[in-house]
Design a protein around this nucleic acid. Sequence first.
RNA 1: CGCGAGGUAGAGCAGCCCGGUAGCUCGUCAGGCUCAUAACCUGAAGGUCGUUGGUUCAAAUCCUUCCCUCGCAACCA
Length: 565
Amino acid sequence: MSKTLITSALPYINGVPHLGHMVGCLLPSDVYARYMRMMGNDVLYIVGTDEHGTTSEVGALKAGMDIQSYCDMNHERHYNTYKDFGLSFDYFGRTSSEQNKEMTYHIFEQLDKNGYIEERTVKQIYSIDDQMFLADRYITGTCPHCGYEKARGDQCENCTQVLEPTDLINAKSTISGSSNLEVRETKHLFLNLPKIEPLLRQWLITKEPFWPEVAYSIAQKWLKEGLQARCITRDLKWGFPVNKPGFEDKVFYVWFDAPIGYIGITKQWADENPKNRNWKDWWYDATNVRHVEFMGKDNVPYHSITFPATLLGTGENWTQVDYLKGVSYLTFEGGKFSKSENRGIFAEDAIKEFPADYWRYWLMSNIPEASDTSFTFDLFASIINKDLNGVLGNFVSRVLKMTSSKIGNEVPSGGNLGALEEKLITTLQARVNDYFKYMNELEFRKAFAELRQIWVEGNNYISEAEPWVVIKEDVEKASQILRTCINLIRIFAILSAPVMPTTSEKMLQKLGLTLSDIPSIKDFNIAQEITAIKAGTPFEVGDMLFERIPEERIAELKEKYGASK
RNA sequence: CGCGAGGUAGAGCAGCCCGGUAGCUCGUCAGGCUCAUAACCUGAAGGUCGUUGGUUCAAAUCCUUCCCUCGCAACCA
């Protein structure tokens, strides 16, 4: 059995995940993991929170908490949100874990031993009142070029000039507001990327035919512009203390230990059941592992350049990314999501408004693959009303209600498959093959457009077969048609499970089944599946699968989530 | 001249790599059906494929000019 290692970019603990984060890495990784499991693959699906860095320190300070409790609290919050969205990760870990510390130290030692680490002294702004060095973005002041008063230390948003923090007039710390700043020298460790570059190029070239264009072109861009040594340590408190003499008062930069977190979290997972789990089977001298990573496009450089270079520099045989799914941005009603401006719908709120499957289906069938995509409530409602209610929900409803009222609450017996069913089987098999093909290629938009067409085939079939007419003349034939339709419900439930697990369960429940009854979908054969449910099996009509979203509700939502701003 | 991605019917997208009657979904209009969630099925209207020039028998597709949108620009996760 081939092994599939699936990782989602680790959400930063201090952030509040919005729909863009969900669709960028968390949801697609889950959908893919569920699909690969159903295909019979041995899947390990790893997610967790990325916890180190200034942002956490500042967040804790503002919340009046110590950093550890602050992170504990937020970790819990992330976990609950993702569970609510139905994410099926095998482990939800943390980059601040002991296991990750161990991994980070080991990888750093190897890099150092191989001569890829160098010391440099840099000048940095120190805030005397905050008692810390400030990252550029934590300094604001007046732009010397255009006079804009809220220019950041790295760049002026107004005139787009790239700045040094020392250029700013009346520079202030954004943390305390203090202007009691000075430039200090500080010694840091750098990862010598130019030295690893030849290895990296050699490795990357093998990926070109497989990666999506967005991901590969971003990686190429970085190589083209030339790699520079990258600072991997910081003057902070919250992080792993550097395990090198003379640097004990520094910590590793969050971007150094965050991707290593995939490995560290795998070890967390393994440590919970050491008899049956071994992290090395997935990461170290591992054979037959295909590693698929999911991330927003802003993360691509780190996963295609920095992290692979880090692993290559160890000289050890680490599992590298085989397929990198880079996803563009989801915008909100044409603008940016912004918590501070109360603009956009965030994951915790989204789940209170509608069931997870509504979001999962919308987001996956509109995932920003080729370019940035805008979320609008109008579009959302139209998809939910048309695809989920009109096409799928209504099909289930019309079939079960008709069978129940005309014949009874058992799958009806009698009749044989005919020419119409032959045609249905052929059409459906072709569509299912395409659906699987797109899923294998991680072409989600196309995959879910195909899934929708599969549902449509159900309505097409029942329209042509007209059981409501046939039943007046030939009850046996009508029974066969309805039995076929009930089997279609089962087939639709199975095929929809990766994207709408709860709805699938609901559909199967009506037929007295659960998802765990479903065998592998590898070699899914419609001709066989179409008769899987036998005559006499009891079923219940139950509730409707989905609810329509009326016009008034859309207007309310737009108002509530700042769609007009 | 910083870099990248995108600009295709009212809306959202596919097609572009490997040139050859412009396709899908929603919306609109008309018809059908009455089992079902004002649903479902069928059909029609609607596009000089951002702009300029070029290559070619032939360009949405290849090369070129300019314009617009979004993102990135390495101490922001």
